[in-house]
Nucleic acid binder design. Structure first.
Lengths: 198, 198
DNA sequence: GTCTATATAACGATAGAC
DNA sequence: GTCTATCGTTATATAGAC
């Protein structure tokens, strides 16, 4: 019987880490429970001592990651910095998440689309709405306080920022030549000032 | 036996259109040959009169689309306009492709990653290199002629442009409130001038 | 906590009648 | 060009021994 996340989290989280790496590399559907068991050095049937199903594994991977991510978002939103500073922090926070949890971000990017069609993963849509609220609030505040230009469609800007930040997980490699801070620096420059010569 | 693309393209391309819509909506692996056959009003076995395999279907969908897209890219590159104008045209061309071939773009975005691991789809990597060449050439030319700022990493800018343009297929809806020209306008403004108040 | 063995279901694909 | 019928494979998941 699967343990509640309290006891023996060592083995449990190790198996989830292995599964997350495989889900990110090969995709959820192309990763079999045998693949996960092989990578863990056990047989496929033994996995069901720890988890109800393969679906439970990706569920726990995504919900755990999102809980952590949105707690960090909330902390930034709750701070009393100005809009541009908070926008800066949220962007940096996102690239930091890609750096520290690349598998989880990749899984979310690749699988959230169709997982969202199942009731069990309804929280993904809730989180998406929550994410939109974070960005749109900051963008509106920026326009109102005059630090951001007012002639752009806020919702369209939000989608561009969101997509461009998270899609970076496709090419960003932790420990590579570019740190997540380098990427955030360049991205914020492009986003705020543009690539045209002033 | 499957027909070479010469004769009776009516039925063949209709079946491919049906398959492309399903591949885009549900994902390639989540679309069964029975799904495709059902949508076409025939039985699954009958599909194999037209195509060797399910893989052949996505292969033909992707290769046909890319051939058309890159022919359009080449035409822009071959023109004698300045770098900024060509950059403008390539961006608009891409959003137009999303508008006119949303299923094909979505399939490429969602499936190219793992399909690329098979020999049969090696041309996807070739096209990716070709795409990079198009953008990087224009960006370099823009920096050299002084219309683009010189303090950014060209390769990083390329990836941001590429990703942000194509990922728009996730939310853009042909026939919706925003036309592909509206989206291109706003995107080019953000990309070139930034969202900060001047 | 892991292994052995297997149930059950769904999938891609095939052969031949019509 | 489509249908009938089904094969062979692979996947998730289960039951019980150890």
């Amino acid at each position: 019987m699967p343990e509640p996340a309290a006891t023996s989290t060592g083995r449990r989280s190790e198996l989830l880490r292995i599964a997350a790496t495989l889900f990110a590399e090969k995709g959820y559907t192309f990763t079999t429970v045998r693949d996960i068991a092989d990578a863990a050095g056990i047989l496929s049937g033994s996995l069901y001592h720890h988890f109800d199903s393969k679906e439970s594994m990706i569920d726990e991977i995504l919900s755990t990651f999102q809980e952590e991510l949105f707690a960090a978002y909330d902390a930034v939103l709750a701070s009393d910095a100005d809009a541009r500073t908070k926008l800066d922090r949220v962007v940096r926070l996102s690239f930091e998440a890609i750096d520290q949890h690349p598998a989880e971000v990749a899984i979310f990017q690749n699988e959230a689309g169709h997982l969202g069609t199942f009731e069990r993963f309804g929280y993904l849509a809730d989180r998406a709405a929550q994410s939109r609220h974070v960005w749109v609030t900051l963008l509106r505040e920026g326009v109102e306080t005059g630090v951001l230009r007012a002639d752009l469609d806020i919702d369209l800007v939000y989608r561009f920022i969101r997509d461009t930040v998270w899609v970076a997980v496709r090419w960003y490699r932790p420990g590579g030549a570019l740190s997540h801070r380098d990427v955030a620096d360049q991205y914020l420059t492009i986003l705020l000032e543009g690539i045209a010569h002033a």
